[in-house]
Design a protein around this nucleic acid. Structure first.
Lengths: 366, 366
DNA sequence: CTGAAAGCGCTTACAG
DNA sequence: CTGAAAGCGCTTACAG
């Protein structure tokens, strides 16, 4: 590839030394006399030499590159986590090879294969599907450490995992509502179809965050001695419109909830809007809790009470974990880090019933 | 690197053929008989063989990787553009090597150097600084095509550029306000320090989007015969709090503006909040225009009138442009694509004065 | 401190 | 259709 300019041979020739010596001077390894180093550096500068990283990687066995696989970089959650990853790995001299799976397992498998072929030193993966991590297992088997981000996957028992304690996060939000006096608490969830599975209490792996949050909801209510009312569990897709509809149907039900938990940020925005459009006054008529501290949550009135995930940290920790593996703790047993989310009470949640008087007034109206 | 499993030699030996033949069978190039191919494929599967992309790239001269350099992946603008890039380049068989510069030229130079060393086939760069693109020029000189995204850079005359027509975008927003009757129109801008330069009308290159938008503001007012009042140009950093302060000082001035343009999404959120906190009723007391169609802009009341940038498209077009270069149009003259932004009128802008009656009432109150 | 030689794992002419 | 050999551009023992 002469188009890519001078090679080490050219530099060595120009400096009147062997390629071994030129390589040592340029690469900063081995011993070189100051005089020689200067001559080589001068020749390299003259020729505009840049090391061929491909050749170097082939012999050193390291590319100083890590693969990062997410379902959607445009999602603020992953974008922020990605920033956390690069902020940690970049100073350590690693570049990031990025892949977007769009949430399909096929795309993920392809991405993992390509990254393996490009010989990334390790991978951080936010999986598309909770089941069957055979492709990830395979990567680990050939010596590429993988760190699972945000999502547990079955079939990769040896991978490190960095997740958020979603069960606790959701449970805390529900506990907050219970404490305020709410008894009919609805939930808008992407995991509506997994309610039965969630209630039966299967193991963690194989459950994605939305399902784990739903479990937190279920557990918190059960702990308070409240029976789960399936009519209060509103399924929705990961779209504002879908959440809008879910909220609407929740409010249309015979005995509507007095409070609603939305298990992610997009769902919360749709639900918020539906409540607004219906002319409900929050928090007087309805308490609402969302996930993630997005800009809009403090711009709307009332400001939204949320569960704040340590998103940036999630990425940063994953990066650090991978760096640790790469730095030699290759055979240590898998690490499973769970970060805590934080309930941030703002204006969209309030006591129910609002006050004894109002309670009375409500009764009289009947 | 035996840790990385079987090599082509191992496969060839197992299949009883030469490495040349094994390579042809596996790589899908050259001629191989069906019988041989089957034997090779079987052996490869048996051994869990994966091509070493490093070795392949070294001989083919292509890594099927493009470098993408942005200032901040966590910024929704770049995250969305990045998604546009990957959606276009991934089906074409390219992976993305990502770098975050944090907005400093040094980090950008380092990123570009490393990407060159890793032999990316091309790069898409959202520059950290408008001036001195020597490092980018250098990349192009050694045969790595560069596409500039969103930001013009001096010193790289041969690079393709994909930008948004920011001057037009801002001018259109101002024209909308003028049409509504506003005459005192303020602007909150990151390019406050460049007002003089903007007014003198220097060339495009060397000006970043914020400055170009400020120019759009200036031009639109001038076209309407309105003199620029420097007290209406409020400088702010790219932070919500800073914009909040800028808006506050704008409203505190002796003759406050009746309408304000915010030249990006973060500034708009801070300004919106300041107006709210002051108890101003929008759009009756103040008209406000922002940039970018972020979720919050339709969640707040009133909904925000905005200039919508084709962010995803910006990335997609950049990806396509780079693909074109790579596909052979290497020597064609540089392309400069400018995408149009779109004014989306919602509820935060209204006629001024509101009506003759109100005008009268206003007068009487004095 | 320096150099000759081998080798990383592929693909590519060139013969046959 | 298949194979022997060269070569991509480095780094790494091994001698000296």
């Amino acid at each position: 590839m002469s188009t890519h300019g001078a090679s080490l041979i050219d530099v060595a020739r120009a400096a009147g030394v062997s390629t071994a010596t030129a390589g040592r001077a340029l690469g900063g390894y081995g011993q070189v006399s100051d005089r020689t180093r200067e001559r080589v550096l001068a020749a390299a500068a003259e020729l505009g030499y840049r090391t061929n990283g491909l050749a170097r990687s082939m012999v050193t066995g390291s590319t100083q590159t890590i693969g990062v696989v997410v379902t959607d970089v445009a999602n603020p959650f992953f974008a922020t986590a990605l920033r956390g990853i690069t902020d940690v790995t970049s100073p350590a001299g690693f570049e990031v090879l990025l892949a977007n799976t769009g949430g399909t397992r096929e795309a993920e498998q392809r991405a993992v294969t390509v990254m393996s072929e490009k010989r990334v030193d390790g991978m951080i993966v936010a999986a598309a599907q909770p089941g069957d991590g055979a492709h990830l297992k395979h990567a680990m088997d050939v010596g590429v450490p993988v760190v699972l981000l945000d999502r547990q996957v079955t079939g990769v028992p040896d991978a490190d995992t960095i997740t958020i304690d979603n069960e606790h996060a959701a449970a805390e939000a529900v506990a907050h509502l219970l404490e305020l006096g709410h008894r009919r608490i609805g939930v808008i969830t992407e995991a509506g179809d997994q309610l039965a599975r969630v209630r039966s209490g299967s193991r963690r792996r194989g459950l994605f965050p939305s399902a784990v949050r739903l479990r937190g909801y279920v557990r918190a209510l059960q702990a308070a001695g409240i029976e789960i009312d399936e009519r209060l569990v509103a399924p929705a897709r990961y779209e504002r419109e879908s959440a809008y509809d879910a909220m609407t149907s929740l409010l249309d039900s015979a005995v509507p909830p007095t409070a609603v938990l939305c298990t992610d940020n997009v769902l919360a925005s749709g639900a918020y809007r539906a409540a607004q459009d219906r002319g409900l006054s929050m928090p007087a008529d309805l308490s609402l809790v969302g996930f993630d501290d997005e800009p809009w949550t403090t711009l709307v009135r009332p400001e939204l009470t949320i569960v704040e995930q340590p998103t940036y940290d999630l990425g940063a920790r994953a990066g650090r974990q991978l760096l640790d593996r790469l730095a030699g703790s290759a055979n240590r047993s898998p690490q499973h880090v769970q970060l805590k989310a934080k309930l941030v009470v703002r204006e969209s949640t309030a006591r129910y019933p609002a006050s004894p008087q109002e309670d009375l007034a409500r009764e009289e109206r009947k």
